[in-house]
């Protein structure tokens, strides 16, 4: 073998190995930093807010009407009453878990499944529901309606 060639060959092999090493390392950096950067990017809903949820603005809800608001995994019914009070209750009927709605004509919270009725204090007044609806607290922050769990 040619004596002069050996270091050269070694050199090129070494260079090649370094080249491969650095490209693997580059890939490694991507594999590590891609999830990290994605993790640090603030998510759409930037914070956990399960103890209170925004129910839109006051102008979005008419007098004498109700609206279903998603509260965590549960629906909550927000009602603006005739005398312009805002009230909110758990919207899950205590009978068979249907979602209740506000019935303007009857002035009650009504469940379409079995005609269960609750008065505007959440009490079960007619039909099969065995228990009253749990109340939520409604607060106004400027024009924004906030619903929170009662503590």
């Amino acid at each position: 073998m040619d004596q002069t060639k050996i270091p050269d060959e070694q050199n090129s092999r070494r260079k090649f190995l370094k080249y491969i090493l650095s490209s693997w390392f580059g890939g490694f950096c991507i594999a590590v930093f891609y999830p990290l950067i994605a993790y640090l990017k603030p998510p759409e809903q930037s914070e956990v807010t399960v103890t209170s949820v925004s129910a839109g603005s006051l102008s979005d809800i008419e007098k004498e009407s109700g609206k279903i608001i998603r509260f965590g995994n549960k629906p909550v019914i927000l009602i603006r009453t005739q005398d312009d009070k805002l009230i909110a209750y758990d919207a899950v009927c205590t009978h068979l878990d249907c979602t209740v709605q506000y019935k303007k004509e009857m002035g009650v919270i009504w469940c379409a499944c079995h005609n269960g009725k609750y008065d505007l204090n959440g009490r079960n007044i007619s039909g099969p529901p065995p228990k009253p609806l749990m109340a939520y607290r409604v607060t106004l922050k400027g024009d924004e309606i906030l619903i929170s769990k009662q503590t």
Partner: peptide, 17 residues
């Protein structure tokens, strides 16, 4: 009141959380 929910948030909402 928020510990559990925040972990839930990390697990579901945050990318690669």
């Amino acid at each position: 009141d928020l510990a559990f929910e925040s972990i839930q948030f990390i697990m579901s909402k945050v990318q690669f959380g």
